[in-house]
Nucleic acid binder design. Structure first.
Lengths: 270, 270
DNA sequence: TCATGACTTCCGCTGGACGGAAGAGGAAGC
DNA sequence: GCTTCCTCTTCCGTCCAGCGGAAGTCATGA
């Protein structure tokens, strides 16, 4: 295992947390043995801590004996102010966009050198979609990613360009190519991908702006772009401008993916 | 023993978790002092544990000094298999429903004696909406709640009927009235509310079925029902049947929501 | 300036966490 | 059926990490 959260944190708390951190998108259910190993601690220790976590509801044991993240943690996690202002404001516009395009719609922000998907609407005839809410995908191989990358600080771009992993035969791995594309993204106001992340999936994306800063990207995924790219771009731009306009009235969605101070505006009733 | 968050659990782990549990919908940001008090532990102890939690990313400190639930916990929480099958399947249908009605759309399951909102689409002209994903609202005062209540086991109905809190002047608090309504819900296949949860909000809801069992309820919220109730009911029923049909091909959406009460499995043995 | 309240740090005591080892449980294999 | 193998569970003596009262620091506001 690549040195993940392991190293068995010193404090009890950090150990318990490293058990939670052992779960990820590719490991949604874990047997105790695996869990202990991934968290980097002896089995009896894991066993004891896991009992506590289960009792609390942070983990749940399936009938088959595996552990999964529990509903209690789901509850609490939803309270996190992760782009809640942005999500709240954008939600209706995503709906509209879906209504017009009937394509899978994505809203993403940049989280370091990755695109963090904060909302998603999925269409009926959906392609094999990789992303779900909470996913982090590479910036260089997704539509929303290219938009976010084009508007990212030089340091981030540099980091991304250092390694451009090939995900399909069509993934752009030549720095020059990508660099040229980013220039076009800035000029034209939209980015596209063609089977660069997964076969059979193309995408278009546009920036979402707040106070002259790109705070998010809005994108759609479709089987092919040859036919109606202009139409999709138009629809996306209308939706993105709608979101941007609403964002102008909201305090602080900005601060990239970093912890935006919870906007009191939409937070609670008062 | 159904203790709340307090009582400062014995083990360090449970103490740390009780700090997380101190957050809820009405307390999304807490100062350290309040946090310590709500979690039922001395301030220095809370301080130390909170540091661990912040370091991990389970909590985040806002510039103002308050604590909020952190992004890391959001991530992990999203991995919970909370109705993920149901949500995934239902998502496109909710979109369609929104497209037709332009009203706020809800998908809820029963969680004990409450309606747990597992998904929501919010319209533009949205009324003051109380529910968000993860909310738990009373069964007797919401459209989806009445549907779920009508199809709930006798024991649950009994529990709900024991106390029918008044939320607005229009909340139904007379057991007889409610009982009669539930009968109609079963007969007609849909439930309605009229400003029973909040003023200015009415709702219609229908059941979602899997293998002859009601596993969820689908509802819309609108400012008034006088005009187009028939239209809404029709749209809801089409969408609900679409979901139900898709669910027939999916293993087991039930059970996930079922084990809400503390499973006696691990309980006293260890 | 002083008072107040919220947070942070200190430090000696102690009780809870640690984890090796041994015991159950159960599913494949002989 | 019996054996083997693997995963999970329980036990228990050692000892160190967590505990929390008390004192110190930093803002705010009177």
């Amino acid at each position: 295992m690549a040195g993940n959260t392991g190293t068995a944190g010193r404090s009890v708390t950090s150990r318990a947390l490293s058990l939670l951190a052992a779960f990820d998108e590719d490991h949604r259910r874990l047997a105790l043995t695996v869990l202990a190993e991934r968290a980097g601690m002896p089995l009896p220790t894991a066993h004891r801590l896991v009992s506590d976590l289960v009792e609390f509801g942070a983990l749940t044991r399936t009938p088959s004996g595996d552990y999964v993240v529990g509903r209690r943690l789901w509850d609490i996690g939803l309270l996190a102010p992760v782009q809640s202002g942005l999500r709240e404001v954008a939600s209706p516009h995503l709906q509209d966009l879906y209504g017009v395009t009937r394509a899978t719609v994505h809203l993403a922000v940049r989280d370091g050198a990755r695109a963090l998907y904060v909302d998603r609407l999925r269409g009926h005839a959906s392609l094999p979609i990789v992303s779900t809410v909470g996913s982090r995908l590479p910036l260089h191989a997704t539509g929303v990613g290219k938009v976010l990358l084009a508007h990212a600080p030089a340091a981030v771009q540099e980091e991304v360009f250092r390694e451009l992993p090939r995900l399909t035969p069509f993934t752009i791995t030549a720095p020059g190519s990508l660099r040229r594309q980013l220039t076009l993204v800035l000029r034209d106001g939209f980015a596209t991908t063609a089977e660069e992340l997964g076969l059979g999936a193309c995408s278009v994306a546009v920036p979402v702006v707040q106070r002259d800063q790109v705070v998010a990207a809005l994108g759609v995924v479709v089987p092919s772009l040859t036919r109606d790219r202009p139409r999709l771009v138009a629809a996306l731009q209308v939706a993105a401008q709608g979101i941007s306009r609403s964002l102008a009235r909201v305090p602080a969605v900005v601060g990239e993916a970093a912890e935006n101070s919870a906007p009191p505006a939409l937070a609670d009733g008062g």
